[in-house]
Design a protein around this nucleic acid. Structure first.
Length: 160
DNA sequence: GCCAACGTTGGC
DNA sequence: GCCAACGTTGGC
């Protein structure tokens, strides 16, 4: 059986909470706290070890893609859902049937320069259907096509 | 199953 | 801090 094609994702994080520099420091981080079913399903049902990840800063001075990461584990239950003191505690989740799943995310590199949301919007033609650019999109985990991945990486080497 | 109220996200 | 978008909750 041929190896499945590499997949690509965009994952948002608030840099005040956890930035690309934090990921660079720790190397690998469990992606705790996702409490949206669609985002969970991407991690639980579709991600594979080695998939590429755009690390996106939201609620930031410069919202945009700041680095590259990769999916570094198979899915497993988010431990914070069972911790009563945690912001992410979910009293309705049971250990026999966890509701929230996550993957580990591993640092790859920072981009030579951040590619801002504003700049991405300037390429709306080439980035047709890029979910990040869709109005009102609040998903914190988004699929990226191979073509979009490649295109966005070429922007890194250009002038903004 | 409908839908109003409510909470959260995230750009600005 | 504001507010549009939109997911979730819960009464009926």
């Amino acid at each position: 059986m041929p190896a499945p094609a590499r997949q690509y994702w965009l994952m948002k994080s608030e840099p005040d909470e956890f930035s690309i520099d934090d990921l660079a420091r720790v190397g690998t981080e469990p992606w705790t706290g996702v409490r949206n079913y669609q985002a969970r399903n991407f991690m639980w049902k579709q991600m594979r070890v080695g998939d590429g990840v755009f690390f996106y800063h939201s609620n930031a001075a410069v919202p945009g893609i700041h680095g590259l990461a990769r999916v570094a584990s198979t899915p497993y239950p988010d431990p914070t859902q069972f911790e009563p003191g945690s912001d992410y505690f979910d009293p309705k989740s049971r250990r026999e049937e966890p509701r929230w799943w996550l993957v580990d995310v591993g640092f790859e590199r920072k981009l030579a320069r951040a590619i801002s949301l504003d700049e991405l919007r300037g390429h709306a033609g080439a980035l047709d259907d890029f979910p990040l650019l869709r109005r009102g999109n609040r998903l914190s985990v988004l699929p990226v096509t191979a073509a979009q991945w490649k295109y966005i990486l070429t922007l890194e080497k250009k002038r903004p």
